[in-house]
Design a protein around this nucleic acid. Sequence first.
DNA 1: CACCAACCTGGTAGTAACTATCACTGAGGT
DNA 2: ACCTCAGTGATAGTTACTACCAGGTTGGTG
Lengths: 205, 205
Amino acid sequence: MPDQRSTLRAQRRADTQRTIQAQAVRLFSERGYDATTVHHVAEAAGVSPMTVYRHFPTKEDLVLLDERGQLVAERIAAAPAAQPLVRRIGGALIESAATLTGGNHREFLLARLRLMISTPALRAKHLDNQYALQQVIVAAVGDDATDPDTAFRVQAAASACLAALHTAVVRWAEDDGRGELPELIATAFNAAFGDDFGSAHPKAR
Amino acid sequence: MPDQRSTLRAQRRADTQRTIQAQAVRLFSERGYDATTVHHVAEAAGVSPMTVYRHFPTKEDLVLLDERGQLVAERIAAAPAAQPLVRRIGGALIESAATLTGGNHREFLLARLRLMISTPALRAKHLDNQYALQQVIVAAVGDDATDPDTAFRVQAAASACLAALHTAVVRWAEDDGRGELPELIATAFNAAFGDDFGSAHPKAR
DNA sequence: CACCAACCTGGTAGTAACTATCACTGAGGT
DNA sequence: ACCTCAGTGATAGTTACTACCAGGTTGGTG
C-alpha cells in the first residue's frame, strides 16, 4: 500500500522535470529564447525531445510552469473579510508575495522573470496565465456569484489588483530583486487605488 | 505629383489587407481558429499564403491588428489634467471607447473580440498588446518620467486602468454588444477604484 | 519467484506556422 | 517609351508540436 502513490516513480519524474526546467532556463538566459530549440534543451537535460514535451506541454511552459496559483487562491478564501474588495484581494497578494520571495528559489525565480519580461511570447502567455489566475481569484472570493452585475464588479477589482501586482513584480525583477517585493506591491496598490494600503508592515491608517 | 504617395498603390494594398482580414475573421469564427490554416485564409481571400504573411506578420495579427493605440494616446495627452492619474487615464479610455463603438464596425469588432476571448493564443497576444499600450499611455502621461519612483506609480495606475477596461470590454462582448460600452467601463472603474467616475456622461464629479 | 499491468521513455512520421531567397508583373515617374 | 521598385508568387527550409507505436522499468499480485 503506497502511502504516496508510487513514491519512487514520482520522485524520478519530479527530478527529470526539475532538471529539464533548470537547463531550459539556463540555456534561454545564456543564448536567448528563440535561438534555443527544444532539442537543445532536451540534449542539455540528457533526455529526448519527446520527454520534454511529456513534462511541459509547450516551450513557453518550460519557463512559466509553477504552482503559485493555488497558494493565492487559498489566501483569498482565508481572508474572510468584510473589507472592500481591492483591499481584501490586495492583502492576500502581498502575503503570497512575501511567502514566495522568502523561499530559496530567488535567483531562479528572477531568471524566469527576466525571461518573461524580455521575451514577447513568454510575456504574452504569462499575462494569459494571470488572466486565468484572475478567474481563480474571482471564484475564491465567492461573493454570491449568482448576480452577474456583482460578478462583473469582482472581475473588475480582481483584474485591477493583478495588474498592479504585475507592475510591481516587473519593477522588482528589473531591480534584480534588491527591493522588498511586498513593499513594492503595496506602493503599486497605493498608486492605483489611493493610500489605503500603508506599507507591507502596516503602521498608520 | 503625388499629393498622396502613390494613391492607387496604397489603395490596392489597403484593399487586399481588408479583404484578407475579413475573410480570416469569417473563417476563424465559422470553423475555429486552430482548425483554419493560413493557407485557407489565403485561398478565401484569393491571394497566396506569402501575401498574407506580407500584410500580417503572424496568424494572430489577422485578428488583432488595428490602430486604436494611437487614438488612446492622443486622448491621454489631450487631457491636460491636474486630476488624479486613474481618473485622467480612465476618462480618456472611456472617451476612446465611445468613439470606437460609435463607428460602423460594430459587428466586425464584436466578432474579433469573441475570437480574442475564446482563443488562448489570441487572448495571450492581445493581453501583450495591451501591455504595449500601457507603455504608450505612460509615455503620453509624460509626468516628469525622470524619477523612477514616479514612473513606477504611473505604471501601476495605467496597468490597473487597462485591466478594468479589459474586464469591461470582455463583458460587453459576452453580452453581444447590447450594453453601452462606456457605461460598462465606468462601472468597472467604480468597482475597482471607488465611486469617482459617475456614469459615462460625466457632469459633476 | 514469476508474471502482469501501468507508466515512462524514445523513435518515426506528419502538420502547420513561419522565413529566406529568387523571379515575375505592373504602376509611377522621368 | 524606358526604368525602377513595390507587390506578389513559388520553392525549400526550420521549428514547435502531435499522433502512433515500440521497448524498458517500476510496483504490485498469484
